[in-house]
Amino acid sequence: MSKAKRLIDILLFVSAKKQFTAQEIADAFNISVRTVHRYLLDLSDMGLPIYAEQGRNGGYTVLSSTILPPILFTEEEAVAIFFAFQSLHYYRDLPFNTEMKSVSQKLYESLQKEAQKKVDSLQSYIAFWNPKRAISTPLLSDVLEAIINHSQLDIQYESKSGITTKHVHPIGVYAHDGLWYMPAIHLQTEKTLLFRVDRIHSMHVSDKGYETTVHLQQWLESPHEPQQPIRLHVELTREGVRQCRSEPNFEKVLVTNSNGTGYIDMMIDQGEIHFISSFFYRLGPDAIVQEPPELIQLLRKHAQTILATYPLDS
């Protein structure tokens, strides 16, 4: 029997048994105790967390029950997984960053030399590039652990109005454009609000649970009804249409005329006006806002601020 096959068999044996002695393995596989110790050192080097207890009655304990049995990948599958991890390379913070680096290294080292050359070559020609954010998200892993445990959170959250305390039940976290977001039920109002994880200054985990049937994927895919609905109507030039096609919030509701111009006519939440005003201000005369009047006033305020910053007599 090959050494690789023997190692796999011993890995499965100790993962299922959890606690064992070298003699038990020697008896089970008809090998010497000295050979068992060599195999256990090999498995430890491969990442199996084994704790050795010294003494007459000593033995071994597998510290983790999450070791998976060996999985056979084709070369193409291994390369695909390697580059899937590469697509997350530009996120500054990930809840499993260390593990991803470890898995990528193991995958790369498991490939044949020709496959490694293929990966090296592909890395010169393909990248899942995204501007790397300088913003740190130190509480990301803690937030994710609280979500998995269905915990409620008291968070100190920074917004335009300052730092306030929010009592929430998070639904999940998702990454978008280099940032991490946490949709959560605000327990005082029973409304689902969206928080940026990097703006959470501190958090306290409550043991209290919260029953909800809302799951993250459902929340992401379902249309979100505005809490304070207001009509957004914007007339667009051809260039305005082209710009709005690149904006996820407007891409699906954009209506294009036969001459290439178009318009947006939809209901939004009044709280979104400040967020979208900078986008339409950037489009200038290529996006003429018809409604709401609050957005028009905000665009005028933006323009007046710029004019005051750069007066004609300067």
Rank of each mutant, 00 (worst) to 15 (best):
A175E: 01
S121Y: 07
L220D: 06
R245E: 15
A134I: 06
Q86D: 13
A134D: 15
K3I: 11
Q227I: 15
P138A: 04
L140W: 02
K166R: 08
E294W: 09
L236H: 01
S222I: 03
K132G: 06
T74N: 10
R242C: 05
T98D: 14
Q19L: 04
L41C: 12
Q243N: 10
L88S: 05
D198C: 14
K208S: 13
D265W: 12
P183Y: 08
R231T: 15
P138S: 05
E53G: 04
R245L: 15
A84V: 07
A287P: 09
F96D: 15
F279R: 15
P223V: 08
A80E: 07
V234I: 13
I273D: 00
R238Y: 11
N149C: 10
K166W: 06
G59R: 09
V289S: 12
D142L: 06
D207P: 09
M267L: 14
F73M: 14
L107V: 00
K5G: 03
D265L: 11
Y51M: 15
Y108S: 05
Q86W: 00
N257Y: 07
V234T: 00
P131N: 05
H224P: 01
I147G: 04
D9T: 12
E158L: 09
Y39K: 01
R196M: 13
T256I: 14
V173C: 14
K132R: 15
V241A: 00
H150G: 03
K101W: 07
R245C: 12
H233I: 07
N149S: 14
L295V: 02
A52G: 12
L111G: 06
Q188S: 08
S15M: 11
I81G: 00
K301D: 15
H233C: 12
Y91R: 13
E76I: 04
I185A: 04
F128V: 09
D45K: 13
K208E: 10
L298A: 09
F83L: 04
P70L: 08
D269H: 01
Y310I: 15
E190K: 10
R34F: 08
A26H: 03
H37Y: 11
R242A: 12
I200K: 01
D154Q: 06
F82H: 03
K166F: 04
L194C: 07
K160F: 08
T164H: 03
K101Q: 10
S44K: 15
S161L: 09
L307I: 04
G47D: 02
L41N: 08
A308S: 13
N149F: 02
S44Y: 14
L254Q: 06
V14W: 00
M182L: 11
K3S: 03
L63H: 03
K301N: 11
S159L: 07
I268P: 02
V143S: 01
V168C: 02
H150F: 05
L122E: 00
Q297M: 09
Y210G: 12
D45W: 05
Y90K: 11
D93N: 13
H215M: 14
V143I: 13
Q105D: 00
Q112Y: 12
F195W: 02
F96E: 08
H302G: 00
V33G: 05
I264A: 11
N149G: 12
L139S: 00
A175H: 01
E211K: 13
T189V: 06
L111P: 01
Q243R: 08
S277W: 12
I10M: 04
H204R: 10
I147S: 12
R238P: 07
R245H: 11
L236F: 01
K191R: 14
